[in-house]
Design a protein around this nucleic acid. Sequence first.
DNA 1: ATGAAAGCGCTAACAG
DNA 2: CTGTTAGCGCTTTCAT
Lengths: 345, 345
Amino acid sequence: MPVTISDVARAAGVSKGAVSYALNGQAGVSEDTRRRILSTAAALGWTPSLRARSLSSSKAYALGLVVARNPRLLGTDPFFPSFIAGIETTLADSGYSLVLTVATQTGSEEASYRRLAHEGRVDGVILSDMRTDDSRIALLLELGLAAVTLNRPDTPSPFPAVCMDDTEGISQAVQHLVDLGHTRIAHVGGTQHYIHGLSRRNAWANTLKLNGLETDLFIEADFGATEGVAATADLLARDNAPTAIVYANDIMATAGQAYAQQQGLRIPADLSVTGYDNTEYAQYLNPALTSIGSDPLLWGSSAAQVLLNQLDGTHDGADVVLPAPRLITRGSTAAPHNRSSSGSK
Amino acid sequence: MPVTISDVARAAGVSKGAVSYALNGQAGVSEDTRRRILSTAAALGWTPSLRARSLSSSKAYALGLVVARNPRLLGTDPFFPSFIAGIETTLADSGYSLVLTVATQTGSEEASYRRLAHEGRVDGVILSDMRTDDSRIALLLELGLAAVTLNRPDTPSPFPAVCMDDTEGISQAVQHLVDLGHTRIAHVGGTQHYIHGLSRRNAWANTLKLNGLETDLFIEADFGATEGVAATADLLARDNAPTAIVYANDIMATAGQAYAQQQGLRIPADLSVTGYDNTEYAQYLNPALTSIGSDPLLWGSSAAQVLLNQLDGTHDGADVVLPAPRLITRGSTAAPHNRSSSGSK
DNA sequence: ATGAAAGCGCTAACAG
DNA sequence: CTGTTAGCGCTTTCAT
């Protein structure tokens, strides 16, 4: 039989209310009695019941994360496991837990948020994979859930954002290639209704324009290996085939690189390649992949912290800006071998 | 103001108790009144409060998963995201949620289980990454948590297990290599205190013995790319360097393959390589990686189902055996090019 | 500053 | 079979 607040109250010779005040650090008890209560509570080994607190305080003491992804792409992406690990480092000593939901079916995403809110499972959610004109902002407002967003959405949002600029890394990659002498630099982008899919493309295009280069070599893919290969095949078959391809993530770069090699191209001599994420295996590819090293762990812990602060009113409402991921140069990028403008096929 | 059980009771002209019975499908109300109650509940849009139910029924209506992994390896492994997605497919229409915990610090794993149990966050947990003489079994017994294990532990366990044999795939891989004419087949295993690290090694060794071959070419690594490379370097530097290496997972195989290529070896001509997991990118490597295709999604959904059944008393206690992962042959394996016994370096 | 007591919304034991 | 009622353990209002 676990010890309850009544036991503590009796042992300390006060009322349950006093114990509650003492526990929550609220006014209503003198410093002396508070200490006495707390120490007898510790002596009895009392821990407040989460369920009872939840019921009477109408709080869940939990945060939610809804991951909406194609299951096939899920296992491929190094982001979420690390991101979640980051969230956990913050939650570990906070009394809060993480409720994770995976929405693989289209349409089940909204249902997930609704359920989380309706059942009162969580007090707030972390919004990742922000989309253009993201409908979740209105949804969460309707549901009355607190939230943080990963990067600031393109529509007005009342929620604080934790930002990690992904344009700087891409700009560095493009500039790196330009400096090496490339003039036909393609971009295999991710799904463009994701903010980060779009912003990476824009960074690529802007940097090219700054250098007076064309931005016609663009293909949208889905961040997956299959479409990464298809996009690569498409680009390499063109008359003005690129001498370098900037991919929106490592898995597409990896798959694209392998495809190009199968087609007889040497990397980086015939084709330079860059990725994004700096996946663990990127350095072990052949050649090692030039990539952009983000920090999902930090992003996760920061996002959780901001949300926690928001929930207890500590947050000032300002966005938090994290250091921008930077380019990591490896063997997959080099000066173009020859400048002939002929297609490669 | 949300509608409560009292509102329903009043509207239906019955007591709260009757509504509760109707809701939970228990005896105590006639079929007629039950239908009436349920329909007025639906009419009023009533949903029972999870928190109130939790408090009075002493149940959490949630399952727990504690992931204890080195954060660096976490992002590399395709297992967990898919596995969790599998869990979710089962939980989606069950009223249960998943509480996820990541234990990156050594020692924090036990603390995680204790907290989950102590706070009453979950009714049961899914035990993955089973270890030899796994201390978690005693721990969970002490904590009074229900559980399912992924594969049967090597110590007596009262918990049902959901099994997916990983020895068959490895045996197939080894036999495949033997059939191709290889005689020096190495194994770069995973951490051996994991059951699946050990069992894969045993499968490798047993299959070699069946073919009258030596089992001296073994190195233990940690399932990570870095140690995969180190192990590969070690093996290739030996006098009796292998002509084929069976890796315990894809990331080590990928890293090892790239290392071998950097050393000037052609794959598969000079060295055949196999992985495990059939990661999405495996087919896009150069050459495409022969691997063993497990099904973490199925594993996750099955494990969650068994645990759910156990919680509501529906489970018969028997282990569930899932189809064994099978070998998927690709370009990284072929007959050895020449049979010279010289080292490769 | 302190204590009593009324909920929070549901479950389950009990009486009818 | 049905309805009543006493909790579950905590928070919080309201007197004292």
